[in-house]
Design a protein around this nucleic acid. Structure first.
Length: 512
DNA sequence: TTCCGACAGTGGGGTCGCAAT
DNA sequence: ATTGCGACCCCACTATCGGAA
Protein backbone atom coordinates (compact mmCIF):
# COMPACT_ATOMS: atom_id res chain seq x y z
CA UNK A 1 0.00 0.00 0.00
CA UNK A 2 1.20 3.49 -0.84
CA UNK A 3 1.94 5.94 1.95
CA UNK A 4 -0.06 8.53 0.05
CA UNK A 5 -3.23 6.60 0.77
CA UNK A 6 -2.55 6.79 4.53
CA UNK A 7 -1.79 10.48 4.29
CA UNK A 8 -5.07 11.04 2.44
CA UNK A 9 -7.10 9.03 4.98
CA UNK A 10 -5.45 10.87 7.87
CA UNK A 11 -6.46 14.17 6.24
CA UNK A 12 -10.01 12.97 5.73
CA UNK A 13 -10.22 11.76 9.32
CA UNK A 14 -8.97 15.12 10.56
CA UNK A 15 -11.44 16.95 8.34
CA UNK A 16 -14.56 15.37 9.84
CA UNK A 17 -15.70 15.88 13.40
CA UNK A 18 -18.12 12.92 13.37
CA UNK A 19 -16.61 9.94 15.13
CA UNK A 20 -18.75 7.52 13.17
CA UNK A 21 -17.27 8.91 9.96
CA UNK A 22 -13.71 8.74 11.32
CA UNK A 23 -14.27 5.09 12.25
CA UNK A 24 -15.72 4.30 8.83
CA UNK A 25 -12.70 5.86 7.10
CA UNK A 26 -10.26 3.91 9.27
CA UNK A 27 -12.19 0.67 8.81
CA UNK A 28 -12.17 1.09 5.04
CA UNK A 29 -8.40 1.57 5.02
CA UNK A 30 -7.74 -1.40 7.31
CA UNK A 31 -9.87 -3.65 5.10
CA UNK A 32 -7.83 -2.63 2.07
CA UNK A 33 -4.45 -3.35 3.70
CA UNK A 34 -2.46 -6.49 2.85
CA UNK A 35 -1.65 -8.82 5.73
CA UNK A 36 1.98 -7.65 5.55
CA UNK A 37 0.97 -3.99 5.70
CA UNK A 38 -1.33 -4.34 8.69
CA UNK A 39 1.37 -4.22 11.40
CA UNK A 40 2.44 -0.87 9.92
CA UNK A 41 -0.80 0.70 8.73
CA UNK A 42 -2.67 0.25 12.02
CA UNK A 43 -0.12 1.91 14.32
CA UNK A 44 0.47 4.69 11.77
CA UNK A 45 -3.22 5.54 11.73
CA UNK A 46 -3.29 5.40 15.51
CA UNK A 47 -0.53 8.03 15.44
CA UNK A 48 2.32 5.78 16.54
CA UNK A 49 5.35 4.05 15.07
CA UNK A 50 5.67 0.26 15.37
CA UNK A 51 9.30 0.84 16.39
CA UNK A 52 8.32 3.24 19.18
CA UNK A 53 10.04 6.61 19.39
CA UNK A 54 13.11 6.91 17.19
CA UNK A 55 14.86 9.90 18.71
CA UNK A 56 13.64 12.21 15.97
CA UNK A 57 12.19 15.54 17.08
CA UNK A 58 11.64 18.95 15.55
CA UNK A 59 15.31 19.81 15.66
CA UNK A 60 16.48 16.74 13.78
CA UNK A 61 13.84 17.18 11.09
CA UNK A 62 15.59 20.42 10.24
CA UNK A 63 14.65 22.73 7.39
CA UNK A 64 11.87 21.87 4.92
CA UNK A 65 12.89 19.52 2.11
CA UNK A 66 11.53 19.96 -1.45
CA UNK A 67 8.78 17.35 -1.86
CA UNK A 68 8.60 14.68 -4.54
CA UNK A 69 6.14 15.29 -7.36
CA UNK A 70 4.64 11.79 -7.48
CA UNK A 71 3.79 9.38 -4.65
CA UNK A 72 6.04 6.32 -4.88
CA UNK A 73 6.70 5.38 -1.22
CA UNK A 74 5.02 2.25 0.08
CA UNK A 75 4.32 1.83 3.78
CA UNK A 76 6.70 -1.12 3.93
CA UNK A 77 9.42 0.97 2.32
CA UNK A 78 8.88 3.70 4.92
CA UNK A 79 8.88 1.17 7.75
CA UNK A 80 12.16 -0.32 6.53
CA UNK A 81 13.80 3.09 6.30
CA UNK A 82 12.62 4.04 9.79
CA UNK A 83 13.94 0.81 11.24
CA UNK A 84 17.34 1.61 9.73
CA UNK A 85 17.18 5.16 11.09
CA UNK A 86 16.44 3.81 14.57
CA UNK A 87 19.46 1.51 14.33
CA UNK A 88 21.91 4.40 13.87
CA UNK A 89 23.67 5.10 17.19
CA UNK A 90 26.97 6.37 18.56
CA UNK A 91 29.15 9.29 17.52
CA UNK A 92 27.89 11.00 14.38
CA UNK A 93 24.48 9.39 14.78
CA UNK A 94 22.56 12.65 14.81
CA UNK A 95 24.06 13.70 11.48
CA UNK A 96 23.50 10.19 10.12
CA UNK A 97 19.88 10.09 11.20
CA UNK A 98 19.30 13.58 9.91
CA UNK A 99 20.62 12.60 6.48
CA UNK A 100 18.43 9.49 6.32
CA UNK A 101 15.35 11.40 7.46
CA UNK A 102 16.11 14.02 4.81
CA UNK A 103 16.27 11.33 2.12
CA UNK A 104 12.97 9.88 3.28
CA UNK A 105 11.26 13.27 3.22
CA UNK A 106 12.72 14.04 -0.21
CA UNK A 107 11.04 10.90 -1.53
CA UNK A 108 7.68 12.00 -0.11
CA UNK A 109 5.07 14.28 -1.64
CA UNK A 110 3.93 17.34 0.25
CA UNK A 111 0.97 15.45 1.72
CA UNK A 112 3.14 12.52 2.69
CA UNK A 113 5.73 14.81 4.27
CA UNK A 114 3.07 16.37 6.46
CA UNK A 115 1.93 12.96 7.63
CA UNK A 116 5.47 11.63 8.20
CA UNK A 117 6.54 14.67 10.20
CA UNK A 118 3.43 14.40 12.38
CA UNK A 119 4.10 10.69 12.88
CA UNK A 120 7.77 11.16 13.79
CA UNK A 121 7.08 13.94 16.26
CA UNK A 122 4.08 12.15 17.77
CA UNK A 123 1.66 14.86 16.71
CA UNK A 124 -0.81 13.19 14.38
CA UNK A 125 -3.72 15.41 15.34
CA UNK A 126 -6.54 13.83 13.39
CA UNK A 127 -9.02 13.45 16.26
CA UNK A 128 -8.53 9.70 16.35
CA UNK A 129 -5.97 7.64 18.21
CA UNK A 130 -6.02 4.12 19.65
CA UNK A 131 -9.64 4.06 20.72
CA UNK A 132 -11.03 4.95 17.29
CA UNK A 133 -8.49 2.70 15.55
CA UNK A 134 -9.91 -0.13 17.66
CA UNK A 135 -13.42 0.77 16.49
CA UNK A 136 -12.22 0.91 12.90
CA UNK A 137 -10.58 -2.46 13.26
CA UNK A 138 -13.77 -3.93 14.68
CA UNK A 139 -15.73 -2.52 11.76
CA UNK A 140 -13.25 -3.87 9.22
CA UNK A 141 -13.36 -7.39 10.65
CA UNK A 142 -16.93 -7.70 11.87
CA UNK A 143 -15.80 -8.30 15.44
CA UNK A 144 -17.61 -6.76 18.42
CA UNK A 145 -15.87 -3.50 19.40
CA UNK A 146 -15.93 -4.38 23.11
CA UNK A 147 -14.20 -7.69 22.43
CA UNK A 148 -11.51 -6.01 20.34
CA UNK A 149 -11.02 -3.34 23.01
CA UNK A 150 -10.61 -5.96 25.71
CA UNK A 151 -8.14 -7.96 23.63
CA UNK A 152 -6.07 -4.83 23.03
CA UNK A 153 -5.97 -4.00 26.72
CA UNK A 154 -4.88 -7.52 27.57
CA UNK A 155 -2.34 -7.70 24.76
CA UNK A 156 -1.09 -4.24 25.69
CA UNK A 157 -0.82 -3.60 21.97
CA UNK A 158 -3.20 -2.84 19.14
CA UNK A 159 -0.79 -4.27 16.59
CA UNK A 160 -0.80 -7.90 17.71
CA UNK A 161 -4.55 -8.00 17.94
CA UNK A 162 -4.95 -6.37 14.54
CA UNK A 163 -2.65 -8.83 12.84
CA UNK A 164 -4.39 -11.88 14.26
CA UNK A 165 -7.83 -10.46 13.67
CA UNK A 166 -7.26 -9.60 10.01
CA UNK A 167 -5.58 -12.94 9.37
CA UNK A 168 -7.91 -15.30 11.22
CA UNK A 169 -11.07 -13.37 12.10
CA UNK A 170 -12.87 -12.68 15.40
CA UNK A 171 -12.23 -16.15 16.81
CA UNK A 172 -8.63 -15.16 17.66
CA UNK A 173 -9.83 -12.64 20.25
CA UNK A 174 -10.22 -15.38 22.86
CA UNK A 175 -6.49 -16.03 22.59
CA UNK A 176 -5.72 -12.72 24.26
CA UNK A 177 -5.84 -13.46 27.96
CA UNK A 178 -3.99 -12.04 30.89
CA UNK A 179 -0.66 -13.87 30.97
CA UNK A 180 2.22 -13.58 33.40
CA UNK A 181 5.01 -11.71 31.69
CA UNK A 182 2.78 -9.80 29.30
CA UNK A 183 1.74 -6.44 30.79
CA UNK A 184 -1.81 -5.11 30.54
CA UNK A 185 -2.76 -1.45 30.41
CA UNK A 186 -3.34 -0.28 33.98
CA UNK A 187 -6.67 0.95 35.30
CA UNK A 188 -6.70 4.70 35.88
CA UNK A 189 -8.61 7.02 38.20
CA UNK A 190 -10.78 10.06 37.66
CA UNK A 191 -10.67 13.11 39.91
CA UNK A 192 -13.24 14.03 42.56
CA UNK A 193 -13.23 17.35 44.38
CA UNK A 194 -13.85 15.88 47.84
CA UNK A 195 -14.00 12.60 49.71
CA UNK A 196 -17.69 13.22 50.37
CA UNK A 197 -18.38 13.53 46.65
CA UNK A 198 -16.40 10.37 45.91
CA UNK A 199 -18.12 8.31 48.59
CA UNK A 200 -21.53 9.59 47.53
CA UNK A 201 -20.85 8.37 44.00
CA UNK A 202 -19.41 4.99 44.87
CA UNK A 203 -21.23 3.76 47.97
CA UNK A 204 -19.36 0.93 49.69
CA UNK A 205 -15.71 1.64 49.01
CA UNK A 206 -12.12 1.41 50.08
CA UNK A 207 -10.27 4.65 50.74
CA UNK A 208 -6.59 4.13 50.00
CA UNK A 209 -3.59 6.39 50.39
CA UNK A 210 -2.34 7.85 47.12
CA UNK A 211 1.45 7.69 46.93
CA UNK A 212 3.32 10.23 44.82
CA UNK A 213 5.62 7.77 43.06
CA UNK A 214 5.81 5.74 39.85
CA UNK A 215 3.07 3.25 38.92
CA UNK A 216 4.35 -0.30 38.44
CA UNK A 217 2.91 -3.62 37.35
CA UNK A 218 4.96 -6.50 38.71
CA UNK A 219 4.86 -9.95 37.11
CA UNK A 220 6.46 -13.00 38.70
CA UNK A 221 6.72 -16.40 37.11
CA UNK A 222 8.93 -18.60 39.29
CA UNK A 223 12.33 -16.91 39.42
CA UNK A 224 11.51 -14.50 36.63
CA UNK A 225 10.28 -11.04 37.65
CA UNK A 226 9.32 -8.27 35.22
CA UNK A 227 8.40 -4.70 36.18
CA UNK A 228 6.48 -2.39 33.84
CA UNK A 229 5.47 1.28 33.97
CA UNK A 230 2.07 2.78 33.24
CA UNK A 231 2.92 2.86 29.52
CA UNK A 232 4.18 -0.73 29.75
CA UNK A 233 7.87 0.08 29.43
CA UNK A 234 10.04 -2.61 31.01
CA UNK A 235 12.01 -1.07 33.89
CA UNK A 236 13.00 -4.32 35.62
CA UNK A 237 16.72 -3.58 35.43
CA UNK A 238 16.35 -0.29 37.27
CA UNK A 239 14.57 -1.65 40.34
CA UNK A 240 16.50 -4.53 41.93
CA UNK A 241 14.80 -3.91 45.31
CA UNK A 242 11.40 -4.49 43.74
CA UNK A 243 12.57 -7.71 42.10
CA UNK A 244 13.88 -8.94 45.46
CA UNK A 245 10.64 -8.00 47.17
CA UNK A 246 8.63 -9.91 44.57
CA UNK A 247 10.85 -12.97 44.91
CA UNK A 248 10.44 -12.78 48.67
CA UNK A 249 6.67 -13.23 48.49
CA UNK A 250 5.20 -16.66 49.09
CA UNK A 251 3.73 -17.10 45.62
CA UNK A 252 5.22 -18.46 42.42
CA UNK A 253 3.03 -16.79 39.84
CA UNK A 254 1.27 -13.47 40.19
CA UNK A 255 0.64 -10.05 38.70
CA UNK A 256 0.43 -7.12 41.12
CA UNK A 257 -0.41 -3.46 40.62
CA UNK A 258 1.16 -0.78 42.77
CA UNK A 259 3.50 2.15 43.11
CA UNK A 260 7.20 2.49 43.83
CA UNK A 261 8.25 5.36 46.04
CA UNK A 262 11.38 6.57 47.79
CA UNK A 263 10.91 6.81 51.56
CA UNK A 264 13.20 8.40 54.11
CA UNK A 265 14.44 6.60 57.23
CA UNK A 266 11.30 7.54 59.10
CA UNK A 267 9.16 6.13 56.34
CA UNK A 268 7.99 9.50 55.09
CA UNK A 269 7.84 9.97 51.33
CA UNK A 270 10.70 11.78 49.66
CA UNK A 271 9.80 14.29 46.94
CA UNK A 272 8.43 13.06 43.65
CA UNK A 273 11.50 14.52 41.99
CA UNK A 274 13.74 12.20 44.01
CA UNK A 275 11.66 9.12 43.26
CA UNK A 276 11.42 9.95 39.57
CA UNK A 277 15.15 10.63 39.33
CA UNK A 278 15.91 7.30 40.91
CA UNK A 279 13.52 5.33 38.71
CA UNK A 280 14.88 7.15 35.65
CA UNK A 281 18.49 6.19 36.42
CA UNK A 282 19.67 3.42 34.12
CA UNK A 283 23.43 3.65 33.89
CA UNK A 284 24.68 3.09 37.43
CA UNK A 285 21.69 1.47 39.09
CA UNK A 286 23.65 0.24 42.10
CA UNK A 287 24.81 3.74 42.99
CA UNK A 288 21.35 5.20 42.41
CA UNK A 289 19.77 2.48 44.55
CA UNK A 290 22.25 3.09 47.35
CA UNK A 291 21.55 6.83 47.34
CA UNK A 292 17.78 6.63 46.93
CA UNK A 293 16.31 3.22 47.76
CA UNK A 294 12.71 2.72 46.68
CA UNK A 295 9.96 0.56 48.09
CA UNK A 296 7.14 -1.19 46.24
CA UNK A 297 3.70 -0.64 47.71
CA UNK A 298 0.88 -2.69 46.18
CA UNK A 299 -2.86 -2.08 45.99
CA UNK A 300 -4.27 -4.65 43.57
CA UNK A 301 -3.80 -8.22 42.33
CA UNK A 302 -4.61 -9.05 38.71
CA UNK A 303 -3.53 -12.67 38.58
CA UNK A 304 -2.74 -15.31 41.17
CA UNK A 305 -1.36 -18.72 40.24
CA UNK A 306 -3.34 -19.47 37.12
CA UNK A 307 -6.40 -17.48 38.02
CA UNK A 308 -7.20 -14.29 36.15
CA UNK A 309 -8.71 -11.94 38.75
CA UNK A 310 -9.64 -9.06 36.43
CA UNK A 311 -13.36 -9.73 36.45
CA UNK A 312 -13.61 -10.23 40.19
CA UNK A 313 -14.91 -7.37 42.34
CA UNK A 314 -12.20 -5.28 43.95
CA UNK A 315 -13.06 -6.63 47.41
CA UNK A 316 -12.15 -10.14 46.27
CA UNK A 317 -9.04 -9.07 44.39
CA UNK A 318 -7.84 -7.26 47.48
CA UNK A 319 -8.47 -10.33 49.64
CA UNK A 320 -6.15 -12.24 47.30
CA UNK A 321 -3.59 -9.45 47.52
CA UNK A 322 -3.73 -9.46 51.33
CA UNK A 323 -3.11 -13.20 51.45
CA UNK A 324 0.09 -12.83 49.42
CA UNK A 325 1.53 -9.47 50.38
CA UNK A 326 2.30 -8.51 53.99
CA UNK A 327 0.77 -5.33 55.31
CA UNK A 328 3.81 -3.01 55.15
CA UNK A 329 4.04 -3.66 51.42
CA UNK A 330 0.40 -2.73 50.79
CA UNK A 331 -1.08 0.76 50.68
CA UNK A 332 -2.82 1.84 53.86
CA UNK A 333 -6.59 1.85 53.53
CA UNK A 334 -9.85 2.06 55.35
CA UNK A 335 -13.23 0.64 54.39
CA UNK A 336 -16.30 2.85 54.23
CA UNK A 337 -19.80 1.43 53.96
CA UNK A 338 -21.37 4.49 52.41
CA UNK A 339 -22.10 8.20 52.70
CA UNK A 340 -23.19 7.80 56.34
CA UNK A 341 -19.56 6.99 57.24
CA UNK A 342 -18.01 9.81 55.27
CA UNK A 343 -16.33 11.33 58.31
CA UNK A 344 -14.18 8.19 58.68
CA UNK A 345 -13.03 8.68 55.11
CA UNK A 346 -12.28 12.35 55.77
CA UNK A 347 -10.28 11.44 58.87
CA UNK A 348 -8.30 8.95 56.83
CA UNK A 349 -7.51 11.60 54.22
CA UNK A 350 -6.31 13.97 56.94
CA UNK A 351 -4.06 11.26 58.44
CA UNK A 352 -2.69 10.38 55.03
CA UNK A 353 -1.80 14.00 54.29
CA UNK A 354 -0.24 14.26 57.73
CA UNK A 355 2.01 11.32 56.86
CA UNK A 356 3.18 13.33 53.87
CA UNK A 357 1.30 11.59 51.07
CA UNK A 358 -0.48 13.10 48.12
CA UNK A 359 -4.11 12.28 48.83
CA UNK A 360 -6.42 9.29 48.58
CA UNK A 361 -8.00 7.11 45.94
CA UNK A 362 -11.57 6.04 46.66
CA UNK A 363 -12.41 2.71 45.03
CA UNK A 364 -15.75 0.96 44.65
CA UNK A 365 -15.57 -2.47 46.29
CA UNK A 366 -17.72 -4.08 43.62
CA UNK A 367 -15.78 -2.80 40.60
CA UNK A 368 -13.92 -5.10 38.24
CA UNK A 369 -10.45 -4.15 36.97
CA UNK A 370 -11.10 -2.17 33.80
CA UNK A 371 -7.71 -2.27 32.15
CA UNK A 372 -6.79 0.81 30.20
CA UNK A 373 -9.87 2.81 31.13
CA UNK A 374 -10.07 5.92 33.24
CA UNK A 375 -13.11 4.42 34.86
CA UNK A 376 -15.46 6.14 37.31
CA UNK A 377 -14.97 3.45 39.95
CA UNK A 378 -11.62 4.84 41.09
CA UNK A 379 -11.73 8.48 42.21
CA UNK A 380 -8.69 10.36 43.41
CA UNK A 381 -8.95 13.22 45.88
CA UNK A 382 -6.06 15.61 46.45
CA UNK A 383 -5.99 18.94 48.26
CA UNK A 384 -5.95 21.93 45.93
CA UNK A 385 -4.09 25.15 46.75
CA UNK A 386 -4.88 28.47 45.09
CA UNK A 387 -3.00 31.71 44.55
CA UNK A 388 -3.69 35.06 42.96
CA UNK A 389 -0.90 35.61 40.45
CA UNK A 390 -0.12 38.18 37.79
CA UNK A 391 0.04 37.40 34.06
CA UNK A 392 3.51 38.40 32.83
CA UNK A 393 3.22 37.14 29.25
CA UNK A 394 1.27 34.68 27.08
CA UNK A 395 2.15 32.38 24.20
CA UNK A 396 0.24 31.96 20.95
CA UNK A 397 -1.66 28.66 20.92
CA UNK A 398 -1.56 25.81 18.41
CA UNK A 399 -4.17 23.55 16.78
CA UNK A 400 -7.64 24.58 17.84
CA UNK A 401 -6.08 27.42 19.83
CA UNK A 402 -4.34 28.97 16.81
CA UNK A 403 -4.79 32.73 16.90
CA UNK A 404 -5.58 32.71 20.62
CA UNK A 405 -3.23 33.64 23.42
CA UNK A 406 -3.11 30.43 25.38
CA UNK A 407 -0.19 29.57 27.62
CA UNK A 408 0.11 32.10 30.44
CA UNK A 409 3.35 33.04 32.21
CA UNK A 410 2.56 33.46 35.90
CA UNK A 411 4.32 35.63 38.44
CA UNK A 412 4.20 36.25 42.20
CA UNK A 413 5.19 39.57 43.78
CA UNK A 414 8.71 40.27 45.01
CA UNK A 415 9.33 42.65 47.93
CA UNK A 416 10.57 45.34 45.54
CA UNK A 417 7.36 45.31 43.51
CA UNK A 418 8.75 43.24 40.63
CA UNK A 419 7.43 39.78 39.78
CA UNK A 420 9.06 36.34 39.92
CA UNK A 421 7.82 33.86 37.31
CA UNK A 422 6.65 30.58 38.87
CA UNK A 423 5.64 28.66 35.78
CA UNK A 424 3.11 28.59 32.95
CA UNK A 425 -0.37 27.23 32.41
CA UNK A 426 -2.76 26.61 29.53
CA UNK A 427 -5.26 24.61 31.58
CA UNK A 428 -8.70 25.42 32.87
CA UNK A 429 -9.66 27.95 30.19
CA UNK A 430 -13.00 27.80 28.43
CA UNK A 431 -13.24 28.99 24.85
CA UNK A 432 -14.86 32.17 26.15
CA UNK A 433 -11.95 32.79 28.50
CA UNK A 434 -9.48 32.20 25.69
CA UNK A 435 -11.23 34.77 23.54
CA UNK A 436 -11.44 37.24 26.41
CA UNK A 437 -7.83 36.90 27.53
CA UNK A 438 -6.55 37.17 23.97
CA UNK A 439 -8.24 40.52 23.59
CA UNK A 440 -7.37 41.79 27.05
CA UNK A 441 -3.70 40.74 26.85
CA UNK A 442 -3.26 42.34 23.45
CA UNK A 443 -4.33 45.61 25.03
CA UNK A 444 -1.60 45.14 27.64
CA UNK A 445 1.07 43.95 25.18
CA UNK A 446 4.47 45.59 25.18
CA UNK A 447 6.15 43.08 22.85
CA UNK A 448 5.26 40.23 20.46
CA UNK A 449 8.07 38.11 19.02
CA UNK A 450 5.64 35.84 17.19
CA UNK A 451 5.74 33.25 19.95
CA UNK A 452 5.51 35.10 23.28
CA UNK A 453 3.52 38.26 23.87
CA UNK A 454 4.94 40.16 26.84
CA UNK A 455 2.40 42.29 28.70
CA UNK A 456 2.30 44.95 31.38
CA UNK A 457 1.86 43.00 34.64
CA UNK A 458 -1.64 44.19 35.47
CA UNK A 459 -3.96 41.24 35.06
CA UNK A 460 -4.57 39.11 38.17
CA UNK A 461 -5.65 35.49 37.77
CA UNK A 462 -6.59 32.89 40.38
CA UNK A 463 -4.50 29.76 39.89
CA UNK A 464 -5.05 26.30 41.38
CA UNK A 465 -2.00 24.05 41.83
CA UNK A 466 -1.06 20.79 43.53
CA UNK A 467 2.11 21.89 45.25
CA UNK A 468 5.50 23.48 44.88
CA UNK A 469 8.58 21.81 43.52
CA UNK A 470 12.22 22.77 43.38
CA UNK A 471 13.24 24.45 40.17
CA UNK A 472 16.52 25.46 38.56
CA UNK A 473 14.61 27.19 35.79
CA UNK A 474 12.69 29.85 37.68
CA UNK A 475 14.13 32.73 39.69
CA UNK A 476 12.48 31.95 43.05
CA UNK A 477 14.00 28.44 42.95
CA UNK A 478 10.52 26.88 42.92
CA UNK A 479 7.77 26.23 40.40
CA UNK A 480 4.09 25.33 40.58
CA UNK A 481 3.06 21.74 40.01
CA UNK A 482 0.02 21.28 37.74
CA UNK A 483 -1.02 24.93 37.66
CA UNK A 484 -4.42 25.71 36.11
CA UNK A 485 -6.65 28.76 35.80
CA UNK A 486 -9.66 29.03 38.09
CA UNK A 487 -10.88 32.53 37.13
CA UNK A 488 -9.71 36.02 36.41
CA UNK A 489 -9.70 38.45 39.33
CA UNK A 490 -10.59 41.74 37.71
CA UNK A 491 -11.48 42.98 41.18
CA UNK A 492 -7.83 42.70 42.21
CA UNK A 493 -4.92 44.94 41.38
CA UNK A 494 -1.42 43.45 40.83
CA UNK A 495 -0.28 44.98 44.14
CA UNK A 496 -2.78 42.66 45.82
CA UNK A 497 -1.38 39.50 44.21
CA UNK A 498 0.27 36.84 46.37
CA UNK A 499 3.94 37.23 47.18
CA UNK A 500 6.84 34.82 46.80
CA UNK A 501 7.38 35.12 50.53
CA UNK A 502 3.90 33.93 51.53
CA UNK A 503 4.08 31.15 48.95
CA UNK A 504 7.34 29.81 50.36
CA UNK A 505 6.00 30.13 53.90
CA UNK A 506 3.05 27.95 52.90
CA UNK A 507 5.38 25.19 51.63
CA UNK A 508 8.35 25.27 54.01
CA UNK A 509 9.53 21.78 53.05
CA UNK A 510 10.29 22.99 49.51
CA UNK A 511 11.62 26.47 50.26
CA UNK A 512 15.22 26.94 49.04
C1' DT B 1 -34.96 15.62 24.73
C1' DT B 2 -31.40 15.81 28.01
C1' DC B 3 -27.59 13.70 30.28
C1' DC B 4 -23.26 11.67 30.68
C1' DG B 5 -19.24 8.51 29.49
C1' DA B 6 -15.37 8.26 26.68
C1' DC B 7 -11.93 10.61 23.76
C1' DA B 8 -8.84 13.72 21.93
C1' DG B 9 -6.42 17.90 22.29
C1' DT B 10 -3.61 21.34 24.61
C1' DG B 11 0.38 21.66 26.49
C1' DG B 12 3.00 22.02 31.83
C1' DG B 13 7.89 20.79 34.95
C1' DG B 14 11.52 17.58 36.05
C1' DT B 15 15.05 14.06 35.24
C1' DC B 16 18.01 11.09 32.75
C1' DG B 17 21.03 9.77 28.86
C1' DC B 18 23.23 10.77 24.77
C1' DA B 19 25.53 13.40 21.28
C1' DA B 20 27.29 17.69 20.03
C1' DT B 21 29.81 21.80 21.27
C1' DA C 1 32.66 20.13 31.20
C1' DT C 2 28.56 22.07 29.49
C1' DT C 3 24.55 22.43 26.56
C1' DG C 4 20.63 20.94 23.92
C1' DC C 5 17.48 17.51 22.57
C1' DG C 6 14.35 13.72 23.04
C1' DA C 7 12.05 10.23 25.84
C1' DC C 8 9.17 9.45 29.65
C1' DC C 9 7.70 10.09 34.25
C1' DC C 10 4.05 12.79 36.74
C1' DC C 11 -0.48 15.56 35.23
C1' DA C 12 -5.67 19.04 34.75
C1' DC C 13 -8.97 20.52 32.27
C1' DT C 14 -12.47 21.55 28.26
C1' DA C 15 -15.01 20.41 24.02
C1' DT C 16 -17.30 17.16 21.50
C1' DC C 17 -19.73 13.07 19.83
C1' DG C 18 -23.07 9.75 20.33
C1' DG C 19 -25.33 6.32 23.06
C1' DA C 20 -28.05 5.94 27.46
C1' DA C 21 -31.73 7.50 30.14
Amino acid sequence: MLLSRLAQVSRDVAATSARSRKIALLGELFRAADADDVPIVIPYLAGRLPQGRLGIGWKLLGQPVPPAAEPTLTVRDVDGRLTRIGAVTGAGSQAGRKRLVGELLAAATEDEQRFLIALLTGEVRQGALDALAVEGLAEATGAAPADVRRAVMLAGSLQNVAQGLLADGPSVLDRFRLTVGRPVLPMLAQTASSVAEAVAKLGACAVEEKLDGIRVQVHRDGDDVRIHTRTLDDITDRLPEVTSAALGLAGERFVLDGEVIALDVEGRPRSFQETAGRVGSRVDVAAAAAAVPVSPVFFDALLMDDRDLLDLPFAERHAELARLVPEPMRVRRTLVEGPENVSAAEDFLAETLHRGHEGVVVKALDATYSAGRRGASWLKVKPVHTLDLVVLAAEWGHGRRTGKLSNLHLGARNPDGSFAMLGKTFKGMTDAMLAWQTERLRELAVDDNGWVVTVRPELVVEIAYDGLQRSTRYPAGVSLRFARVVRYREDKRPEEADTVETLLAAHPEVAP
